[in-house]
Design a protein around this nucleic acid. Structure first.
Lengths: 212, 212
DNA sequence: ACACTGAGAGTACAGACGTACACCGAACCC
DNA sequence: GGGTTCGGTGTACGTCTGTACTCTCAGTGT
């Protein structure tokens, strides 16, 4: 319950934006313990504190709302990932920095990551597709990052693809683990495991190539 | 539609079992394009060709039905995995055999694997928990398998855990990819990638340990 | 000052939902 | 042969769903 859209004299666009945000946040919250497909327009409206039909002033459907959530989730994630590779990195730096940044980002945007993890496999079809597409973009970006690192020039593009896929898969799994972990020191355990996994993969990729 | 439970004079328990299977299969089918949380008791009943209230003669709820599906999915998977390690294996054999067996199993039980992939993150809470538990068991079994392989005696149990987690994560991702792949030669690509990934991981784990 | 725009309210409806209850009739056991 | 068991039926309920329609009225541009 508790709409509390707040009062005070705001401009019309401000009011609309505020309601829109409330809808997005509420949908994120309501989908958290199953999936967006189990969230109804009416639930969202009631929680936000508007009448059901007012929902349509902002989104054509729950599915459209979901696509918006996918976008805003990845926009912020990819911005952060871009920061990771600002300095031209060594591989070790890339790993440590990536894990830290991922963990930090998951912490502060837990809801968005949970959303992505769920809807990736269980959302409305269009939402599912959007998530997969975004993840593929991240994979591609990672591949070009790796390619720019000294010592990897000789790798085939296939190998790069496979490696970056594996790393992203591992990071997604790490994010899932971080999400469902309670707050405590479990988090640092998971981060340690993630670093170890990525290092294993990395060492493997290097030696695997050099020994044909 | 199309119940077609068939006729002929069957015993009462046979009839009951037949209906029960139809319910399980129908639920599996209906959940395939979102999640079990979006499947209603009435949908299932209508598809099976029974009246809604008759559902209760077999399951207390959709959630209980889901737990049953989790069980039967993993029973068959773990039976197959047990076969993989029948011969005392080398690591390379373990990888190749595992990938082949996984792919084969995914092919023939596509619906069950899809179900697990989805409900793992987006199912009813109890179902989600059951899937996670089963996956953890598989991780543990894999860890003890690896520990029995010559050359891995010196590894710490932590390293074993991390490695098997990584391998299982990779295999789950592979299964997901296989499921949503169309039939064609994409499948063999995915299998190749999976083998490469596992080899990378493997080589990495070996060299990583030896070089402290 | 005034007409306009548009977010939200209010009402309404047909359909789907889970579930309670009484009932049936064929397979079952003695 | 006669009573019992039990899978499946039929009806009925209150609730929730998406969406169509009309209405209100405060912020806006002229």
């Amino acid at each position: 319950m508790a709409s509390a859209l707040g009062e005070g004299s705001l401009s019309r666009v401000e009011r609309k934006e505020r309601t829109r945000r409330a809808i997005l946040d509420t949908a994120l919250d309501l989908s958290a313990d199953t999936s967006l497909v189990a969230v109804s327009l009416r639930q969202v409206a009631k929680e936000v504190g508007i009448v059901p039909t007012a929902f349509y002033r902002h989104f054509a459907s729950i599915e459209a709302l979901g696509l918006e959530l996918v976008d805003e989730s990845f926009v912020s994630l990819r911005a952060v990932l871009r920061d990771v590779r600002r300095p031209e990195p060594s591989l070790k730096q890339l790993i440590d920095a990536s894990v830290d940044v991922l963990a930090e980002h998951v912490e502060v945007r837990r809801a968005h990551f949970g959303f992505i993890a769920r809807e990736r496999v269980a959302g409305p079809p269009a939402v599912r597709e959007a998530v997969r597409h975004q993840i593929e973009l991240v994979e591609r970006e990672l591949a070009t990052d790796i390619a720019r690192i000294p010592g990897t020039e000789a790798w085939s593009s296939d190998d790069l693809r496979v490696l970056s896929k594996l790393m992203v898969t591992s990071m997604v799994a790490t994010a899932e683990a971080l999400i469902l972990a309670g707050r405590p020191e479990v988090t640092t355990d998971i981060k340690d495991q993630a670093r170890t996994q990525l290092r294993m993969v990395l060492v493997g990729a290097l030696n695997w190539k050099s020994q044909g």
